[in-house]
């Protein structure tokens, strides 16, 4: 019973820890996504200088370890006169690291769109913005979601490092619980389960995003059909052909 009491006493702390972990995860993910988009698109630039610089940035943030980047932002930046808030430090390190990984996903997703789509939008006199926004990106997006889901889970797991830059995240409070109960198995068992549940919920959310992305390019059922209890309608033969070749231009 002692463990349960200690757990109840620790609940407010764990709640705050989960909040910090979620802030890191979502903040990191949003910025990482923006960085990934910017870098991923820049790798396709016509200018050699832009392409080269982007490559260097991507390889730099992929090649140096996440913990090194975190420590660098936390210990070294203040020496250069820039003192960042711990939370922002964590979000920034996660965003830079996973943004660089995400850039490869964006690049891969766009190059997986068939060349005919580019030609068709040119033939229809789309501007390059319209081409990207209306034709290429929706198709690339459907390809990008599954690898992004993996990266998001990686990012969530990476947030546990925040304890080492003195943030009070979930990992920190698990350790506190271990100290107060003296029961490692209990404290870390609960902690790992909480992480697992968060990861599971994120995966579910991303699966919904994937269904929507596929439906938008007419390559899958709507989210409502997937979530509904009714057995799926048998799809006609036409629906099963890879529609990616004919979509985009229509909308």
């Amino acid at each position: 019973m002692n463990n349960v009491d200690a757990f109840i006493a620790a609940l407010p702390g764990i709640g705050r820890g989960i909040l910090v972990t979620l802030e890191l995860t979502l903040g990191g993910a949003v910025f990482a996504f923006l960085i990934a988009l910017a870098l991923g698109l820049a790798t396709r630039s016509r200018l050699l200088l832009v392409r080269g610089a982007t490559r260097i940035v991507i390889e730099f943030f992929r090649g140096t370890s996440l913990l090194v980047q975190l420590f660098w932002l936390f210990y070294v930046l203040p020496l250069l006169g820039i003192r960042l808030d711990s939370l922002f430090c964590g979000i920034l390190a996660l965003a830079l690291n996973y943004g660089a990984y995400g850039a490869e996903v964006v690049r891969g997703g766009i190059s997986a769109v068939s060349i005919g789509q580019f030609e068709a939008s040119r033939a229809l006199n789309f501007t390059s913005w319209q081409r990207m926004r209306r034709v290429i990106f929706p198709q690339a997006w459907a390809q990008m979601v599954p690898p992004f889901t993996n990266l998001l889970i990686q990012l969530l797991k990476g947030t546990a490092l925040a304890t080492f830059i003195l943030l009070h995240d979930l990992n920190f409070f698990i350790n506190e619980l271990r100290r107060s109960t003296g029961d490692t198995l209990f404290a870390y068992g609960i902690g790992l389960v909480i992480y697992f549940v968060i990861a599971y919920l994120l995966t579910l959310g991303m699966n919904a995003v994937e269904v929507r992305a596929k439906n938008r390019i007419a390559a899958g059922p709507t989210l409502r059909e997937v979530m509904g209890l009714k057995p799926p309608k048998a799809r006609s033969q036409i629906d099963q052909t890879p529609r990616s070749r004919m979509t985009g231009v229509i909308s």
């Binding site: 889970i153 969530l156 797991k157 990476g158 947030t159 546990a160 490092l161 304890t163 990992n171 698990i174 350790n175 271990r178 490692t184 198995l185 870390y188 902690g191 790992l192 992480y195 697992f196 990861a199 599971y200 995966t203």
Partner: peptide, 18 residues
């Protein structure tokens, strides 16, 4: 699945104390 979806750092510390 459980090991894959939970943070390595937490697992390390867990095993370290255990």
């Amino acid at each position: 699945e459980f090991i894959r979806q939970t943070p390595l750092v937490v697992q390390l510390v867990f095993a370290y104390y255990l």
